[in-house]
Design a protein around this nucleic acid. Structure first.
Length: 270
DNA sequence: CCGACAACCTGACGGC
DNA sequence: TGCCGTCAGGTTGTCG
């Protein structure tokens, strides 16, 4: 579930619950996810007031009035449950606000992470050091891709998954964007002509915007403990559609590369 | 730099 | 019903 649009809509769903609220209880229920949870997280966040929520790449950021920012990553299976009826084995962090709202960070596979850094030093946070530009921001355009792809013979799909080149794309949206831009996933990145890169930038923005809108439309249901985002899956053109007909009539193909599935239309994408 | 692979974990699903 | 293999939206590291 969690690529950039899912994190964006998650943050949007958390905002009305947390913004301006004092955290009266912050309880980690295990010592680690993908890596250790800071031992002082509970002490530093309990009693703090949330002053802002935002997103960077696939990370969610929660700022407090104590100058700390909690940074979460949802990995493959993470999500926040709002006002859960009961607490399960995969609820790894519990939060309660002064207004009596409860949150549980749930992550069965525990590929996610939870960090706490000084807000003023956020640029020094390890995983943020080498991140490329935000795909929906000003720093991302065809010229950027021309520079990033120059001389590279790796498949364009592989480089789009590289967070150092552009931050926030995952397997689904890369497959979708390449389809919309009509670019073959295995084409050597450095050989993709500039007009195609112009299309690619537009396609990435288009698919991310549409997914955020689709996720946003489900925000009403965000508080449901078992609530799932992901309405955008109904709009996928190629991802998960192996053997189905593309709009051109050809069948969507699937290929495994580096242990991950790539979905594409060999007729449309060149 | 590249591609392939493994590791980290659990759950869902299909086949038998 | 159960067992087994396969797959899954991410990140990080190794090896040749």
């Amino acid at each position: 579930m969690p690529e950039l649009p899912e994190v964006e809509t998650t943050v949007a769903g958390l905002r009305p619950v947390l913004l301006g609220q004092r955290l009266v209880s912050v309880e980690p229920r295990r010592a680690d996810l993908r890596r250790a949870i800071p031992v002082d997280l509970r002490q530093r966040l309990t009693g703090a007031i949330v002053t802002g929520l935002s997103r960077r790449a696939k990370y969610g950021l929660i700022d407090t009035d104590r100058g700390d920012t909690m940074i979460f990553h949802l990995g493959m299976s993470g999500r926040w449950r709002v006002d859960p009826v009961d607490i399960g084995t995969h609820d790894h962090l519990l939060i309660e606000t002064a207004a009596g709202r409860r949150l549980a960070l749930n992550d069965p596979r525990r590929f996610g992470s939870l960090d706490l850094v000084e807000t003023a030093a956020i640029a020094g946070f390890g995983p943020f050091q080498a991140l490329g530009p935000e795909p929906l921001g000003d720093g991302f355009d065809a010229a950027h891709l021309v520079r990033a792809f120059a001389g590279r013979i790796a498949p364009v799909k592989a480089l789009l998954l590289d967070q150092k080149i552009v931050a926030g794309l995952g397997n689904i949206y890369v497959c979708e964007a390449l389809h919309i831009a009509r670019i073959a996933p295995d084409k050597a990145a450095g050989t993709v002509a500039r007009p195609k890169l112009v299309r690619l930038v537009a396609a990435i923005r288009q698919v991310l915007d549409a997914a955020i809108i689709a996720g946003g439309s489900t925000l009403r249901d965000f508080a449901r403990p078992d609530g799932e985002l992901g309405y955008f899956s109904k709009q996928w053109l190629v991802y998960g559609r192996e053997g189905e007909a593309c709009a051109c009539g050809a069948l969507v193909q699937r290929r495994a590369e580096g242990g991950r599935s790539t979905f594409y239309c060999a007729t449309c994408q060149r």
